[in-house]
Design a protein around this nucleic acid. Structure first.
Length: 477
RNA sequence: GGCCCCAUCGUCUAGCGGUCUAGGACGUUGCCUUCUCAGGGCAAAGAUCGGGGGUUCGAAUCCCCCUGGGGUCACCA
C-alpha cells in the first residue's frame, strides 16, 4: 500500500512551500488509495518553539487536508532510535564519538586553513578500542554516535523526478546519528521512522537531495528497502533567485489565509508550482487534482517562482465564480476567525448580500470587501473638487435635477432609474459621463463603483436623496 | 571552495527527433461591451528554446564542453 508522510519540525511557523509539499504528498496517497501520515519531528530541543506543532497541524487542516495516521512525535520514541543506533554499532556501521565541541571546531578550522576542499570528521574515535569505549561510557563521558562511512564507495539511487543520482562516499561526513542529549538527528530519525511506519514514497523539496545519500547508506546498513524518492523544485521569490522573503509579501501559510485568500485558490495555485497536467486545464479542485496528479508530470527543474500576481488572479477567479451566498459565508467565517470587522452589522443580511453581489467580481481577496463596500454602510466623505471634476460647471444643476427626478419616482429599481435618468439627459443636454460621474461621486465619494444604477438601487431612495442633499450643501459653501 | 542538481516568452509551463513559422495561462498593451472601476470578449507585443560544438537527412528535444543559476556541506531539520 502506498503511504506518504509530511514530517514538520516544530521550530517555527509553517511556510507556504510546506503546504505545497503537503498537497503533493496528500494527493499522491489519495490517488493510490493509500495513506497520508503526519509525523512531528521534534528532535531539536534548542530550536523548539512552544505551540508550533499545534499551529502547524491547525494550518494543515485550514488548507483542507486531513491525515490517516498521526500525528506521532519523535521525542516520544527516543528508545527506538537509540536501539537502532546501537544496532549499527554492533554491525560496525556506526561508532561512539567522545570528541568535544572544541576539538571539532578546531578540526574544521585546521582543515579549512590547510585548504582542504571540505571539512570532515577525522574518525579519531573509530580508533578507540572496545575497552576504551567501555571505560569512557562508565565514566559518564558525553558521547554521540556517528555513522561509519566507508571510503570510496559509490552510492546511487533513482529519484522519480531527477533520475539517477550518484555520489562517492568520500564526499560524505561521518554524520552524527545520535546526539549527546540522547535525541536522534534528522537522518537517523527519518530513516528509522519511514521504515517502521512503512512509508513507500518520500516527497519533499529538492534541498534534501544532498542528504539523501546518507539515508541511502542507512537503509543499506539496516538492510531495509529504500522508499521511492520524489524531489520537488523549490520555491523562490521573483527576481531574487532566493527563498521567499517577507519583503515581498506573505510567506507563512497562515498569512495568506489571514489576508483573505481562499484555501482552494491557494492550493490550486500551488498545484501548478512544479506540476502540470499537460493539458490546458488550470482550474482544479482537489478531487480533480488527485485524479490527474502524475509523478512523471512533475517538472524537473531547480526553482520555481512564487508569482504573487498569479495567486491573486486565482483567488479573484475563485471569489467571483463562487455563489454569492457561499462567498458571504466564507467572508463571515473569515472575519470571525481573524477578528476582522466587516463594518456591516446593522444593515441586515439581505443588504450585505446585495452589496457583495455587486463587488464580488472586483475582489481579489476577502479583505477587499471592506474598502470596496464602505460607502454602502457609512456616509461617504465627498470632496467638492471631485464632485466638480466631471460636471463641467454644472454640478449644482445636475444634482438638483436628479434630486427632483428621484423624489418623483414611485418604483425604485435599476431599470426604471436608468430609463428615467437617460430621459433627463436628453432634456437638459447633460453628457452621460458628466451627469453620471457627478452622481456617482455625490453618492459614493469615489470615482469607481459598480454600475451606477445598481448602486443606487441597493442604496435605496431615502439614502440616495439624503446624500444628494448633503452634496448640494457642500457645494453651497 | 568540494559535491549534487537545474537551464523554453518577465513568470508558471506545453514540448519527449520531423505536426514548432514553439502552444496555453498570469502579467503587460490595445480594441469592444460602457456612466467609472471591475468582469467578459477579441487582439497584439513577448522565447532564434543560455552559448558553443557534435550525432542525424532532420534537434527545443540525444551527447560533450562552457557559462549562468540554485542547493548542500552542523550534536538544524
Amino acid at each position: 500500500m502506498v503511504k506518504t508522510r509530511m514530517a514538520p519540525s516544530p521550530t517555527g511557523e509553517y511556510h507556504i512551500g510546506h503546504i505545497r509539499t503537503v498537497l503533493y504528498n496528500y494527493a499522491f496517497a489519495k490517488k493510490n488509495n493509500g495513506k497520508f501520515v503526519i509525523r512531528i519531528e521534534d528532535t531539536d530541543r534548542e530550536r523548539f518553539v512552544e505551540g508550533a506543532s499545534d499551529r502547524i497541524l491547525q494550518v494543515i487542516k485550514d488548507y483542507g487536508f486531513s491525515w490517516d495516521e498521526g500525528p506521532s512525535f519523535q521525542s516520544q520514541r527516543l528508545e527506538i532510535y537509540k536501539k537502532h543506533a546501537l544496532e549499527l554499532i554492533e554491525k560496525g556501521n556506526a561508532y561512539y564519538c567522545f570528541c568535544s565541541e572544541e576539538r571539532l571546531t578546531k578540526l574544521r578550522e585546521d582543515q579549512k586553513a590547510k585548504g582542504m576542499p571540505s571539512t570532515k570528521y577525522d574518525k579519531k574515535c573509530l580508533l578507540l578500542s572496545k575497552d576504551e569505549v567501555k571505560s569512557n561510557l562508565n565514566e559518564g563521558l558525553k558521547y554521540v554516535i556517528r555513522l561509519n562511512v566507508k571510503p570510496n564507495e559509490v552510492i546511487k539511487w533513482k529519484d522519480e523526478v531527477f533520475g539517477e543520482i550518484e555520489i562517492n562516499s568520500n564526499d560524505l561526513d561521518d554524520q552524527v546519528l545520535l546526539k549527546s542529549d540522547g535525541f536522534p538527528t534528522y537522518h537517523l530519525a527519518v530513516v528509522v521512522d519511514d521504515h517502521l511506519m512503512e512509508i513507500t514514497h518520500v516527497i519533499r523539496g529538492n534541498d534534501w537531495i544532498p542528504s539523501t545519500p546518507k539515508h541511502v547508506l542507512l537503509y543499506k546498513y539496516f538492510g531495509w528497502e529504500l522508499p521511492v524518492y520524489i524531489h520537488l523544485p523549490n520555491l523562490k521569490e521573483a527576481g531574487e533567485n532566493k527563498k521567499l522573503s517577507k519583503r515581498f509579501g506573505a510567506v507563512f501559510a497562515t498569512e495568506f489565509l489571514e489576508q483573505g485568500y481562499l484555501p482552494e485558490a491557494v492550493t490550486n495555485f500551488l498545484m501548478f508550482l512544479g506540476w502540470n497536467p499537460g493539458t490546458e486545464k488550470e482550474i482544479y479542485s482537489m478531487e480533480e487534482f488527485i485524479n490527474d496528479f502524475i509523478v512523471s508530470k512533475i517538472h524537473k527543474t531547480d526553482l520555481v517562482v512564487f508569482d504573487r500576481d498569479k495567486l491573486s488572479w486565482f483567488n479573484g477567479y475563485y471569489i467571483r465564480n463562487m455563489p454569492t451566498i457561499d462567498l458571504l459565508k466564507a467572508l463571515r467565517e473569515w472575519s470571525n476567525k481573524y477578528s476582522v470587522d466587516l463594518g456591516v452589522e446593522e444593515l441586515g443580511e439581505k443588504y450585505v448580500l446585495k452589496t457583495l453581489e455587486l463587488v464580488k467580481e472586483r475582489m481579489k481577496t476577502l479583505g477587499e470587501f471592506i474598502p470596496l463596500t464602505s460607502y454602502f454602510f457609512r456616509k461617504p466623505t465627498v470632496l467638492a473638487d471631485l464632485l466638480k471634476k466631471h460636471a463641467q460647471g454644472e454640478e449644482v444643476k445636475i444634482l438638483e435635477s436628479y434630486t427632483k427626478l428621484f423624489e418623483s419616482l414611485k418604483v425604485w429599481e435599476k431599470v426604471e432609474l436608468e430609463n428615467k435618468s437617460h430621459e433627463i439627459l436628453e432634456r437638459s443636454g447633460f453628457k452621460p459621463k458628466q451627469a453620471f460621474m457627478t452622481l456617482r461621486v455625490a453618492v459614493s465619494g469615489t470615482e469607481a463603483t459598480p454600475p451606477l444604477f445598481d448602486t443606487l438601487e441597493v442604496l435605496g431612495k431615502e439614502e440616495v436623496l439624503q446624500r444628494l442633499k448633503t452634496a448640494l450643501k457642500l457645494l453651497e459653501r
